[in-house]
Simulated assay, not measured.
Amino acid sequence: MSMASERANKSGFAAEAQRKINSKYDPGLAQEALEWVNKLTSKVPNTSGDQENFYEVLKDGVILCELANAIEAGSVKKIQQSKMAFKCMENINMFLEAARKFGVPAEETFQTVDLWEKQNLSSVVNCLHSLGRKMGKYGKPGIGPKEADKNVREFTDEQLKAGQSVISLQYGSNKGANQSGVNFGNSRHM
């Protein structure tokens, strides 16, 4: 039994904020993420993107840790098989550390309670998609668009100096400009 089921229902501003967070959850993206996790681990029993199923599959963190180990062996040293809250949250935290090591930026990860207490499952989906985009570096199948590689360009001093003498079209052009037809204000009445 998770902490989320033992809490009182939210009300007022907290309930409104939770409804807004829940509205960002996309079952299609969640299903795509679970299918990708299953492709790498073969451990996901049900890849439905339904919010309840997504939570049930990932809440103890075991599959997330196995995902990290499928990407790079030994990423998570010891996966806790216990259903105790502390052990499950430890699994989730170890996955998050591995995800950061794989290159997922901090703003695309989630807090442990977002998953454990079912507070923000859309951020969990976003984290999995972010991790999936990084898989090109690890030779694993990914999800979503492929991340761009650096395209560093080197210019010689001669090329840089040549660029300084060109007037950019952003400055506009005065070709064909004159003041014919320009009149301001009221015309002279006779």
Results as ranks from 00 to 15, higher is better:
6 E>N: 12
7 R>P: 00
78 K>W: 00
39 K>T: 15
44 V>D: 03
76 V>T: 06
59 K>I: 10
95 F>P: 00
112 T>F: 02
43 K>Q: 04
115 L>P: 05
70 A>G: 09
16 E>H: 12
20 K>H: 11
21 I>W: 11
56 E>H: 11
76 V>W: 04
57 V>E: 01
96 L>N: 10
110 F>G: 04
108 E>I: 03
13 F>R: 14
91 N>H: 04
63 I>V: 06
86 F>D: 13
20 K>P: 01
37 V>N: 05
41 T>D: 08
82 S>Y: 07
99 A>P: 03
69 N>A: 07
44 V>G: 04
77 K>E: 13
86 F>N: 14
38 N>M: 06
6 E>T: 07
71 I>K: 09
82 S>E: 06
118 K>W: 01
87 K>T: 01
105 P>E: 13
113 V>E: 11
103 G>Y: 09
29 L>P: 00
72 E>S: 15
59 K>R: 07
73 A>Q: 05
113 V>A: 13
33 A>Q: 07
33 A>N: 02
110 F>Y: 10
93 N>K: 15
11 S>D: 09
78 K>L: 03
12 G>T: 12
74 G>A: 06
40 L>W: 01
60 D>I: 02
88 C>Y: 00
112 T>E: 05
38 N>E: 12
114 D>N: 14
38 N>T: 07
72 E>F: 14
10 K>Q: 14
62 V>A: 04
21 I>Q: 03
65 C>P: 04
10 K>T: 12
39 K>V: 13
108 E>Q: 15
59 K>V: 07
82 S>F: 08
35 E>I: 10
26 D>T: 09
7 R>Y: 05
62 V>W: 02
96 L>C: 04
35 E>S: 14
116 W>H: 04
106 A>S: 07
105 P>L: 14
37 V>L: 05
72 E>R: 15
29 L>I: 01
70 A>L: 08
23 S>G: 14
11 S>W: 09
94 M>T: 00
18 Q>N: 08
13 F>P: 04
93 N>R: 10
30 A>H: 03
83 K>W: 00
35 E>N: 15
44 V>Y: 08
94 M>L: 10
61 G>S: 06
86 F>K: 11
59 K>H: 10
7 R>I: 06
21 I>L: 14
45 P>N: 06
25 Y>P: 11
71 I>Y: 06
55 Y>A: 08
32 E>S: 12
28 G>P: 02
82 S>I: 03
99 A>W: 00
11 S>Y: 08
82 S>D: 10
47 T>K: 08
92 I>Y: 01
111 Q>R: 10
95 F>Q: 00
94 M>D: 09
63 I>N: 01
69 N>V: 06
21 I>F: 09
10 K>N: 11
4 A>G: 08
71 I>F: 13
60 D>V: 06
106 A>K: 15
24 K>W: 07
25 Y>W: 15
20 K>A: 15
94 M>E: 15
71 I>N: 07
23 S>E: 15
86 F>L: 11
48 S>F: 01
34 L>N: 03
40 L>I: 04
60 D>M: 03
49 G>L: 09
12 G>F: 14
9 N>K: 13
